[in-house]
Design a protein around this nucleic acid. Sequence first.
DNA 1: TTTACACCCTCTAGCTACTGTAGGTTCAAG
DNA 2: CTTGAACCTACAGTAGCTAGAGGGTGTAAA
Lengths: 142, 142
Amino acid sequence: MLTIGTLAKRTGTKVQTIRYYEQIGLLPEPGRSAGGQRRYGDSELDRLSFVRHARQLGFSLDAIRELLDLSDHPDKSCAEADAIARRQLKQVEQRLARLEALRTELKRMVHECSGGQTSDCRVLEVLRDHSECLTEHEEIGA
Amino acid sequence: MLTIGTLAKRTGTKVQTIRYYEQIGLLPEPGRSAGGQRRYGDSELDRLSFVRHARQLGFSLDAIRELLDLSDHPDKSCAEADAIARRQLKQVEQRLARLEALRTELKRMVHECSGGQTSDCRVLEVLRDHSECLTEHEEIGA
DNA sequence: TTTACACCCTCTAGCTACTGTAGGTTCAAG
DNA sequence: CTTGAACCTACAGTAGCTAGAGGGTGTAAA
């Protein structure tokens, strides 16, 4: 049996985060010691590892909820899990494209700055005048 | 003189966002009509455009505050603005690197999924077992 | 002039995914 | 039996907005 602190260390999660996952129903309520402290077994360790890994891959908590549900029903079709992963991949690719455009623009700003006074700073100038941008970047970059 | 709605349209900002920027001190308090409605001039339009453009390039509101301050003092050295932009560029490049690793992993998951039952779904399997990952991705992908 | 209606006002709460703090209790070692 | 780390609950705060309630303003047509 693991305490919450041990579980946290093993999974690289903060203690509060574990309690938060329990609160929002992502992890089941665990057993308790006589004094009321949480005690975890291996299934909870696996489940939390799954969650953390999915988070590292950028899945939202809602997506993870779905994935966990699929994982709990081995007889269901794999198609849904596949769709979720494809959706996530698509999102990542969109973000990559946006970030690449941002990098281009930022590089140009930084390169053109000659280091004088702010009155003729390229960085500030570009920010003032969108028409100086070569790329489109309507969406916020993140 | 512009109403808040017109300013919003011109800058591609939501009305509430403009009020929010005012509230956190990013935009100055504007003049008001007799009935108490906000009225804006060209300087506010320029300032808000600057803010939105910087947001599109991914600068944080704190960074934007600094950039605005520099922009208000044309005699200051450009070095600070340059440093802020370089910091932002570095952040973007770090995110790009992380996202590229995520894309690799997600692509692999999706490609290997054969479309059967969840019991042998590669997507879920990879999530269950971190050791199946080829790349490191300790930080959350965003 | 009155009435309609889009727009504006303030205030408060909600979103994601946590993180931190306060004030108190439990556990295990010595 | 005492000490001190680790645990408990409950609530507030983070970024950067966004949405809603409940009401007031501005303007143009009838």
